[in-house]
């Protein structure tokens, strides 16, 4: 796959074909169709309630699709459980931070590193063989992911004792520890001021390159979206409003109308 990409033929990592999700009478997503190429950073934007988070929930198997199909690396993945989807290489963060609150920062990441660990229950219970060594390796790996987002000094504090900004970074570290190929970030800069969010944008770019990711990003801070994303998909009321490059989106009359009155750079909500 990598060699194909190098040979110049772009590979589609993720593709949505006519994906629709209804909750009773509400159509949260309607006929979503888009794809992301390997190595791209793509933005998914739209006003509140547009269906962005629902799209993430569909891709990661939290909800089943009502219609349509989701294809990851030529494989239909709708119908799979979230834990199966993680194992084939898709990781995400949550808009409403979902850390393991009472656990240490390090343990939060260890749980993610465990995803690719294989020692068995019997060996664990009797501390047989290399379990001790494996445990040490897990912790070391977790520390590396913490260092990647700059949280290595906080490894032993309780996750929910940290300020929001750090908790969001921990969510990213935890997602990276799953060794994904496709990373879904749901409003990673929520609650940050413009300065902090631009710094975060830089970090996302660095991580994207270092871990050779394909990234799909939901974000309300437009400067973050515009500085990171080569392709943007705009949603409103569950349907596609526009799709294109940052410049195309910024000058699209439909998009401007949808955002009008809300202000272009919107105040953040929790």
């Amino acid at each position: 796959m990598n060699s194909l990409a190098m040979a110049g033929k772009p590979t589609e990592v993720l593709e949505l074909r006519g994906v629709t999700k209804r909750f009773g009478g509400i159509t949260a997503c309607k006929d979503l169709t888009f794809h992301i190429r390997e190595g791209q950073i793509m933005g998914l934007i739209g006003p509140n309630g547009a269906g962005k988070t629902t799209a993430f929930n569909l891709i990661t198997g939290v909800y089943g699709v009502t219609e349509g199909s989701i294809i990851y690396n030529d494989q239909i993945i709708n119908g799979k459980r979230p834990d199966q989807i993680v194992r084939i290489g898709i990781a995400r963060t949550f808009q409403n931070i979902r850390l393991f609150k009472n656990l240490s920062v390090l343990d939060n990441v260890c749980i993610a590193v465990d995803c690719h660990e294989t020692y068995l229950l019997g060996a664990a219970c009797l501390r047989l063989g290399n379990v001790r060594k494996r445990e040490k390796a897990i912790q070391e790996q977790a520390m590396e992911y913490l260092a990647a987002v700059g949280l290595e000094d906080r490894a032993s504090v309780r996750a929910n004792s940290m300020p929001y900004g750090y908790q969001r970074k921990l969510e990213i570290a935890r997602a990276l520890a799953l060794k994904p190929k496709l990373l879904l970030l749901d409003e990673p800069a929520a609650g940050m001021n413009p300065e902090e969010s631009l710094e975060l944008a830089k970090l996302i770019r660095i991580l994207h390159e270092r871990f050779r990711l394909t990234t799909l990003l939901i974000e309300h801070h437009m400067d973050v979206v515009m500085s990171l994303c080569e392709k943007i998909y705009v949603m409103n009321f569950g349907v596609k409003l526009a799709e294109g490059s940052a410049e195309e989106i910024q000058s699209d009359p439909e998009v401007l109308r949808a955002y009008l009155g809300e202000g272009y750079k919107r105040a953040e909500h929790p």
Partner: peptide, 21 residues
Amino acid sequence: SRHGRAAIAIREDFVAAEMMG
């Protein structure tokens, strides 16, 4: 062990746990 951590993850937040594989 990793098996215990998985159980703890389920207790803390099973949606997030599932998303950790």
